[in-house]
């Protein structure tokens, strides 16, 4: 059952698999960003590509590599599928994609809206991708040209920028995921949520690939600085003093109150164990998948 918090008039829609701890973290924090706007760093990758890698969907990732190859060759000005957000601009299409593709959970559909004015949105027809195996590389040309598929077009929206995640039911489930996996991280998670509210990048999480020998690791990095964390905490206290209704999850922040000397700093500022978020994999060097990943690591 899709959340009734999703409204047709909302700006856009995205599926967030909040059983995944990294997605749960960003969902509760309340802000999602495309990886093309994160600081320049070889290996930046989109959340959608991260999901494909984590699930071992190598054929799908190889197909994404072919679409990226056509984009780089003939449509360089377009957003890359490997770094943008995979969303929908129409709630009915989002639900239809669920029905056709069977790879999204209807409970995970949420509304989003731009956090900044300088976002980009490009609409393409996902049917070209689904029918790539039958059509061949011409499907990629027609996709990037913005052509509608002849039979029953299904538009998808690639987004670049930062976007607020609306609604509370998915975020409640996201919270429970982190609570279950790493309850000591909840204080920093609450700081991360407050930081997003204040426009700070503290606690933002982003995916990237790195290589260790023959092993490729998809990681998610949480931006955290203890000093900045304290500043966000102090600012939240100030907001609360001015306005007691200012929403703060006090039980989670409780470990940060009181005398620091009495507490273990590692416990106070517990960022989740990175191993919860990491996924190691290897690819055969001769495959197109290896080429795709190499392109990401070198871009």
């Amino acid at each position: 059952m899709a959340s009734n918090e999703v409204r047709a008039e909302d700006f856009g829609f995205i599926y967030l698999d909040v059983d995944d701890p990294a997605i749960a973290w960003l969902a509760y924090r309340g802000l999602i960003s495309s990886s093309d706007i994160t600081p320049a760093n070889p290996g930046n990758i989109s959340w959608f590509s991260t999901k494909l890698i984590k699930r071992g969907l190598s054929s799908t990732l190889e197909r994404e590599g072919k679409f990226e190859g056509v984009r780089q060759k003939s449509f360089k000005e377009k957003l890359s599928r490997l770094s943008s957000l995979y969303t929908f601009d129409n709630v009915e299409t989002a639900r239809e994609a669920l029905k056709n593709l069977g790879k999204f959970n209807s409970e995970n559909l949420v509304s989003i809206e731009p956090a900044d004015q300088d976002f980009r949105r490009e609409i393409y027809d996902m049917q070209w991708i689904d029918n790539f195996d039958l059509i061949g590389i011409d499907a990629a040309e027609r996709y990037w040209s913005g052509e509608n598929y002849p039979e029953h077009p299904l538009p998808e929206a690639l987004l670049s920028g930062r976007f607020w995640i609306l609604g509370t039911s998915v975020r409640k489930r996201a919270y429970r995921t982190i609570q279950r996996l790493d309850p000591k991280a909840l204080a920093v998670l609450e700081l991360a949520r407050l930081a997003a509210h204040f426009g700070s990048n503290l606690g933002a999480i982003s995916p990237w690939l790195r290589k260790e020998g023959e092993t490729i690791i998809v990681s998610q990095v949480i931006n955290y600085d203890e000093k900045e964390g304290l500043e966000v905490f102090q600012r939240a206290l100030g907001e609360h003093r001015k306005n007691p209704e200012f929403p703060i999850n006090w039980p989670d922040l409780k470990p940060l109150k009181g005398s620091k000397e009495d507490k273990n700093l590692d416990d106070l500022f517990k960022v989740p164990d990175g191993r919860l978020f990491e996924h190691e994999f290897r690819v055969d060097k001769a495959t197109e998948l290896a080429q795709t990943i190499q392109n990401i690591l070198l871009s």
Partner: peptide, 29 residues
């Protein structure tokens, strides 16, 4: 497969009953 044969996985994991732990292995080509 993850939900559907449209989304086949190449993942390969090994489980050790002695430790009740999973570890990744070289994926299926």
């Amino acid at each position: 497969r993850v939900d559907s044969f449209h989304t086949n996985s190449n993942l390969h994991h090994a489980y050790d009953p002695a430790t009740d732990k999973w570890a990744p292995r070289n994926p299926l080509p």
